[in-house]
Simulated scan of single mutants.
Amino acid sequence: MALAHQEEAVRAKLTDLVEIVVLRAYRCKDREYVRVARAVDSADLRGRLDRAVDSDSPWARCHAGYVLWLLDRPGVPNTPHVWRAWVAGKAAALM
């Protein structure tokens, strides 16, 4: 699924999938969708993620923010350590 060269219809469905994942409560392995987000990165996806960052849902704000942060940093690996460090940094910044 996380191939960079997908047909437009497939890219649209994968973009929908990434949006669905970031809008729901975080589940184990959700951060794996960053690979898909990186493969289908676009203005449309970033717009959806920006809207999720501004949503009323703390889950959506956190998860979408993380995905956007990683999209801006393609060299940063998507590891549990990076996720925990990002979440801890966001929590500290909110206090």
Rank of each mutant, 00 (worst) to 15 (best):
L94I: 09
C62E: 10
R84W: 05
R46A: 01
R27I: 02
R48I: 04
S57Q: 09
W86Q: 05
R73Q: 04
A25M: 14
P74T: 01
D30Y: 09
D72K: 00
V67L: 03
H63M: 14
W83E: 06
A37D: 01
E19C: 05
T15S: 13
E7I: 15
Y66L: 12
Y66V: 00
V53H: 08
A85N: 13
P74V: 08
A85S: 14
E8V: 12
S57Y: 00
L94C: 08
V34T: 05
V76P: 11
T79H: 13
E32D: 02
R11A: 10
L49F: 10
S42E: 09
L68I: 06
R11D: 09
A37W: 00
V21S: 05
D30N: 05
W83R: 11
D72F: 13
G75A: 03
A52E: 08
L68Q: 00
L71W: 03
D50A: 06
A88G: 04
Y66N: 00
A52F: 03
G89E: 11
L17M: 01
L3Q: 01
V82T: 04
V21P: 03
E7C: 03
D54H: 09
L23H: 12
S55K: 12
A43E: 05
Y26D: 15
R51P: 07
R51T: 11
D54P: 14
G89R: 02
G89Y: 08
V10D: 12
R51G: 11
E7H: 15
A2S: 13
A25P: 00
A9W: 15
C62Y: 06
L23C: 07
A92G: 15
D56H: 11
A4N: 15
L94N: 13
E8N: 12
A9E: 08
K29C: 14
V34N: 07
S42T: 09
Q6A: 15
R51I: 08
D50C: 08
V36F: 02
V40K: 04
K29H: 10
A91W: 14
L68V: 01
A37T: 10
S55Y: 08
D30E: 03
R61P: 07
I20R: 14
W83M: 07
D41W: 11
R84H: 10
W69K: 02
P58M: 02
R27G: 08
A85K: 08
Y33D: 06
T15M: 10
K90G: 14
M95D: 14
K13C: 11
A64Q: 01
G75V: 04
